[in-house]
Amino acid sequence: MRGAAIEIVDVNKWFGDFQALRDINLSIATGEKVVICGPSGSGKSTVVRCINRLEEHQSGTISFNGVELTNDPASVASIQGDIGMVFQQFNLFPHLTVIENLMLGPMKARGLSREEAVNRAKQYLERVRIPDQANKKPAHLSGGQQQRVAIARSLCMEPKVLLFDEPTSALDPEMIAEVLDVMEELAREGMTMIVVTHEMGFARKVADKMVFMDNGEIVEQAAPEDFFERPKTQRCQKFLSQILHH
């Protein structure tokens, strides 16, 4: 049994008076793939953003490889880069070329030389199958290509965990597959992944664990076979029937 890469214990989070997360408990082992789904506003993004410290939680603990994450800048700095993140809106840097987007983190945060950073960037552009777009600005790429660049940008930091927050929700339908293919390949190579998505086909293929959230709570947590065939709660059944018949 490998140790938990990420351990979330009794986490609560409020935005002002509004409680966005309620007693969240979730453990993600090294190499494990967890898919989180649930209706909009249920707190999926907030969970993911608390893991990489884009948001602060108010109670409970989140630890990464046995070290508790706090809001102290040193703790925040120690994980960023190790916990990569792919956003729904890509968030590429529009003023930089594709390859510069990929080189920035390795050079400035990891201290690689320009040459090392170029080599690493090319290697990961290869991995996401767009080696020929290196010198274009992101705006000249299709949405699917942009999201693959964003994945490559995260990979260039050689993270131990990759978080995905609805990575295909902003894409035209014909581009979803090319992004999911890249993600499946990462999964096969053993990357630890937490993916917020409504792509249930992808979830069935790669997930080791399914998590269903509603109203700031984790309502169900199960292996995919159980989750899809025998959902325990009515809320989850309803959600699945809506999403699968869509």
Binding site: N52, R53, Q89, N91, G105, A109, R110, A150, S154
Partner: peptide
Amino acid sequence: RGQSEAAQTIGLS
């Protein structure tokens, strides 16, 4: 805001 968040996640100070 996504720009500074993306920068944070690739470890930039």
